[in-house]
Simulated assay, not measured.
Amino acid sequence: MNSIKKCGVLSMVVLSIALTACTSKPKAQKAEETKSAENWIQLFNGKDLNDWDIKFKGEELGVNYKNTFRVEDGLLRVSYDNWDGWDGTFGHIFYKGEFSHYKLRVEYRFVGDQVKGGPGWAYRNNGLMLHGQSAESMELDQDFPTSIEVQLLGGNGTDDRPTLNVCTPGTNIVMDGLLTEQHCMSSDSKTFHGDQWVTVEVEVHGGDVIRHLIDGKEVLSYEKPQYDPKDKYAQTLIPENGDLIITKGTISLQAESGPTDFRKVELLILE
């Protein structure tokens, strides 16, 4: 190859490398651009609770007992500063409508001390109630909506307390091919101690698979969410054809004695 041809080939290689360097983007930038291109719905708008319904045990629909659910400093807060002590009044706040196939991303943190007299199991405990019944269909003295609970737990500074566990108020699930009637099952997540912010994601595929993820890593999965025919509240929700599989439902957050802040609650509809 003569010197002119060599020079031409070398120039093309240099130009190709330069163009690749100019058009390549860091992974973090690509991920952020992909996220922005997706149509995420902000369930919490950072301003008010206009699209949410509140239901506390023993109270009529819409009563925000002791102003427990509130918006402060752009956060959706579960606060107990108006409570003298725990009185067994569990609460839930429901986003409008029902959802079937979606991703739910939530940023939360546990803050301060549990209300005096709160149950030991509810220490730094909240939940994302998915595939739930409507707030209107709950009975007056019902503790929890029939639903699949993605349990959120905070550390106590010493013990292992994984988050993104699953609990089943009025429901059952299938894990590893077997129907399980155990109320709560732990995930493989690490423990998050202190008042740090935690970002979690749940991927829901109707009546099929539900996956729990932290930083894109799956920490728990199960399938075939279904009504428990032995539960008195679930019995009223089972359709006439007897099909127990739950394919859609409401999304709600809990108030069960642990002060909690939610900075973001967003949803991406899946086809």
Rank of each mutant, 00 (worst) to 15 (best):
G132R: 03
Q151S: 07
H131I: 09
P239W: 06
W121G: 12
N50P: 06
I148D: 00
S3Q: 14
K6M: 12
Q254M: 10
S252Y: 02
Y95G: 00
M185R: 14
Q29Y: 12
V14A: 15
T180P: 02
V14L: 15
L237H: 02
T20A: 15
G120I: 10
N45F: 06
V106M: 13
G132C: 07
G62R: 06
I41D: 06
K224P: 03
I269Y: 11
G177D: 06
P229K: 06
W40R: 04
N241P: 07
L213T: 04
Y80M: 02
V174C: 09
E223A: 10
G216N: 08
A122F: 05
N39K: 14
R109L: 05
D208N: 15
D176S: 12
R211N: 08
H205N: 15
F99A: 01
T199Q: 09
Y102V: 08
L244N: 01
N126L: 05
D243Q: 13
G170L: 03
Y233G: 02
N50M: 14
N45W: 06
M12H: 12
T236A: 15
V115S: 01
R124T: 04
E98D: 12
K66C: 07
G216P: 05
H193C: 08
F69L: 07
E181S: 14
D53F: 03
K66R: 14
C7V: 14
F110I: 02
D159I: 09
R263D: 10
N241R: 09
T163G: 01
Y233M: 09
N125D: 13
V265N: 01
T158I: 14
T23A: 14
M129T: 04
D51I: 07
G258S: 15
Y222K: 04
